[in-house]
């Protein structure tokens, strides 16, 4: 089953024409897909179109389920005065958007996710006081509170130490295997992406140049 279907997607920024050109792809349920490509190739723009953050596109994007999102680190205020618990709990906002307060089930959901990701014991700590790796773990927990189907991550390991980046990939792989949650991520770290992903999409100058298995990409890719 395809959770996301993209048909003939084109997008231009006012200052950059043809950022995305005739993109066609599907994201299957239960897959771990990595979008790779150079800076400015259109990877993050594609994610923003899928998420509805870029609206003026042409073509079709069909989304079957709720999406959990982990934005680029630069989009987050890392010195924000909020506890881990407040950040994770905010992921449940789309579950009961009309309620004034978080429900018991929202709090239970956030508790379970924090326990799974080993951050429940530090839930009262300030988000701003955490290391980069821990902050990403908290934001993954928030994304998991938003959905049980698919999470989209925009360069989640950017700026992290290689050992911490490895832990984040392992965590995502575990989430995919144990929770059957579909992972779609943009990554610069091609080598690691190839180790964990089961599907690779390469974008060059706004066009999809390769879609296939990591083993096929290693043998040639788009180049």
């Amino acid at each position: 089953m395809d959770l996301i279907q993209i048909k003939d997607l084109c997008f231009s920024y006012p200052t950059k024409k043809d950022t995305l050109k005739h993109i066609n792809l599907n994201i299957e349920s239960g897959s771990f897909t990595c979008i790779v490509g150079e800076n400015g190739s259109g990877k993050s723009t594609l994610l923003k179109c899928i998420l509805g953050l870029n609206e003026d596109y042409t073509g079709n994007i069909i989304k079957e389920k709720n999406i959990g999102y982990l934005p680029q680190k630069s989009d987050i205020q890392t010195n924000f005065p909020a506890t881990i618990e407040e950040v994770v709990l905010s992921g449940t906002i789309s579950n009961h958007p009309s309620k004034i307060f978080y429900t018991k089930s929202d709090k239970e959901e956030a508790k379970q996710v924090m326990e799974k990701l080993n951050i429940y014991n530090i839930r009262k700590q300030c988000f701003a006081d955490l290391s980069g790796g821990q902050q990403q773990r908290v934001l993954i927990a928030r994304a998991l509170c938003a959905t049980k189907d698919i999470i989209i991550l925009d360069e989640p390991t950017n700026g992290l130490d290689p050992s911490i980046a490895k832990q984040i990939y392992e965590l995502l792989d575990k989430i995919k295997r144990e929770e059957n949650i579909t992972i779609l991520m943009v990554s610069h770290d091609i080598e690691r992406a190839l180790n964990y992903a089961d599907k690779v999409i390469e974008i060059i100058n706004g066009e999809v140049k390769f879609i296939g298995k990591p083993s096929e990409f290693k043998m040639g890719g788009a180049k």
């Binding site: 923003k48 998420l51 509805g52 953050l53 999406i67 999102y69 934005p71 989009d75 987050i76 205020q77 924000f80 909020a82 950040v87 905010s90 992921g91 906002i93 789309s94 958007p97 928030r142 938003a146 989209i152």
Partner: peptide, 12 residues
């Protein structure tokens, strides 16, 4: 306030 993009992606 914390993350406007996440808010938009969550349908707010």
């Amino acid at each position: 306030t914390f993350d406007e993009n996440f808010a938009k992606a969550s349908g707010l």
